[in-house]
Amino acid sequence: MARTITVGAAQLGPIARHDTRRQTVSRLLELMREAHGFRCDLIAYPELALTTFFPRWPIEDEAELDSFYETEMPGPETRPLFEEAARRGIGFSLGFAELVIENGRKRRFNSSILVDKTGRIVGKYRKVHLPGHSDVMDRPGQHLEKRFFEVGDLGFPVWRAFGGILGMCICNDRRWPETYRVMGLQGVEMVLLGYNSPIGLGDPFELDALEPFHNHLVMQSGAYQNATWVVGVAKAGLEEGFNMIGQTCIIAPSGEIVAQCATMGDELIVRKCDLDMGAPYRADIFNFAYHRRIEHYKLITERTGAIPPLETT
């Protein structure tokens, strides 16, 4: 019997700086109800799905900065998502800014959670590969994730949920092959990947022009090389003067894009995903145990001087 997950990728259009959580959550709920109408098991939302992409501003006021973060999940304003999910029997993944107090110190992370069909949180991920800068740059727009977030400290775990093995990552993580490979080595069958990717911040035009191509390239290669579904969910459109590239898509273990958004606004795409589709790739082309030879990579790099020799004990 085939193992399938019907997944809805819920792209979001722009969120304004002063939009309230209630306003934004109402949009998420509308997309959830639409996904339920398509009999989705799971709906995936983007990175920082509850707020605008606030790292574009060098925010100095502590209270204003804190207002973009969640201190509990669910909280009073996000609880309706969990209640609606439980009522309709649909799971979800959600990206948000997380603020925790540890040993009297504020810690800030770019996080995502996985919630099952009962409204219970079954997994949390914190973004590892933070792009941008920690200092304000002389450029049209800022990308200050290194200023406002710590590097994630939870690794790249996977969870047995929805009848399969699921993992999560966030935005810039998608550009690094080890993101997928660490989950791939754990047998991941579907990666839920939210992103906010702006252009026009001051990068060379050659980079901005290729951003849409590179966006799909890295997700497709990650899917193919690790025989996993990848659900890439974007913030899209002109948000506070900056263009977000959108291109929300669902990618099969073959590396093929099998569904993609056509707009720059709130839009849901749906795909029934056969989790066993990756099995032939894992059994043959990407049979890690049979073909992968990590010890030889180490040996070659030692001999060529690419890295210092490994210490032996």
Rank of each mutant, 00 (worst) to 15 (best):
A2T: 10
T6W: 09
A10Q: 03
L12V: 09
H18P: 05
R21H: 09
T24W: 05
T24G: 07
A35G: 07
F38K: 09
P46S: 14
T51M: 06
P55H: 00
W57P: 00
D61S: 10
A63P: 08
E70Y: 06
T71Y: 15
G75T: 13
G75Y: 10
P76R: 14
R79A: 10
A86C: 07
L99P: 00
G104C: 09
G119N: 04
K127E: 15
S134D: 07
F148C: 01
F149L: 06
V151P: 03
G163T: 08
C169G: 06
W176L: 14
R181C: 05
G184T: 04
Q186K: 10
V188Y: 00
V191G: 01
Y195R: 15
E211T: 12
H214C: 08
L217D: 07
V218Y: 04
M219W: 06
S221Q: 08
G222A: 05
Y224P: 02
Q225P: 04
K235V: 08
G237Y: 03
L238I: 09
E239L: 04
E240T: 02
E240V: 03
F242C: 03
G246R: 00
C249K: 05
I251R: 02
A252N: 04
S254E: 08
Q260M: 10
T263N: 12
M264H: 10
C273A: 15
L275S: 00
M277Q: 15
F286Q: 03
N287A: 14
Y290R: 09
R292E: 11
Y297W: 06
E302F: 14
G305Y: 13
T313A: 15
T313E: 08
